[in-house]
Structure formats: C-alpha cells, structure tokens
Amino acid sequence: MNNLIKNIEFSKIVNLKELVSYQESQVISRTIAQTPNANITLFSLDKNEGISSHVTPGDAMVQILDGEAEITIGDNIFTVKEGETIVMPSNIPHGLEARKKFKMLLTVIKN
C-alpha cells in the first residue's frame, strides 16, 4: 500500500510547527503530500526571506503556524499572523515575504 501522506509519523499526535526548523537566511520546506491535484507542504522562512510572485493553477491556502507573513495577492498586501489563514486564488499573482520569521502549512488544490 502506498501512503499519500509522507514525512510525518502515522497514528501519532504531532505539532506541525515542530516538523520544520528555522535556518538562518533560508526557506525550508517539507512535503507532506503530493498528488496531481493536491500538494501539502510545511515551510519555515527566516526574516527577510520570501517566495517571489507567481501564478498557480490551483487555489493555495496558507495557514500560519508561527510568526507573521506579508502576503501579496494581486495588488493587495495582507499581514497574516499565527493562527490565521488566507486563500490565494488560482491564476492570480501571489507571493510572500517574512517581515518576521514564520512557519506555514501550504495546501494547494487543483482541478
């Protein structure tokens, strides 16, 4: 049997923000699931690191697990903090920057 979820223990309670660590001047990612229609990835970004503006064919939901992110969707800029979530619609340019270091769970769903 092939598991769809990987890089995380099964049948065990885990704290997602403990599964990725901060690294100085780096963006760290850990893939949790990847199928043709869905991707789930944990990220940690050090202060002043980012992911440049891009377009995706699927809707992308960001859940901030720790810290604070500045997320741009189209012409709008949002400050999203620990415990908050924002959805970046498909085919709209979006990007993010760590004004403070932060960790997020990114879920992308495609048709």
Rank of each mutant, 00 (worst) to 15 (best):
S44I: 05
I40P: 08
S53C: 12
K47M: 01
I28S: 06
H94E: 01
S21P: 00
Q63L: 08
G74V: 09
T35D: 04
S53M: 13
N15K: 15
V14T: 06
V108N: 07
I73C: 01
K47G: 05
T79G: 00
A33R: 03
E70T: 11
G67E: 06
P36F: 10
V108Q: 00
T85M: 14
L45Y: 11
G58Q: 07
Y22G: 07
S53W: 02
G74W: 00
K47F: 01
A33N: 13
G50Q: 06
L65N: 03
D75F: 03
G95T: 11
E18D: 14
E18Y: 02
T72V: 09
L16E: 02
M61V: 13
K17M: 13
V62G: 03
L105V: 04
T85G: 06
T35K: 09
N48G: 00
E97H: 12
E84M: 15
I13F: 04
N15R: 15
I8P: 02
T31F: 09
N15T: 15
L19V: 07
S11Q: 15
I51E: 01
M88R: 09
G58F: 11
V80E: 00
A69K: 01
T79Q: 05
V27C: 11
N15Q: 14
I51R: 08
A38W: 10
T72H: 06
D75L: 09
S90F: 09
I77F: 09
G83M: 04
K6R: 11
N111S: 03
F78M: 04
N76C: 08
G83C: 03
K17Y: 11
E97W: 10
I5K: 14
F43V: 00
T85C: 11
P89A: 12
E97K: 15
N2I: 12
G74K: 07
N91W: 15
T56H: 08
S90P: 04
M104G: 10
K100M: 10
V14S: 08
T85A: 14
P36W: 13
S53F: 07
M88N: 00
H94R: 01
I32P: 07
I40V: 15
R30F: 01
I73K: 03
N3Q: 14
L105S: 10
L96K: 08
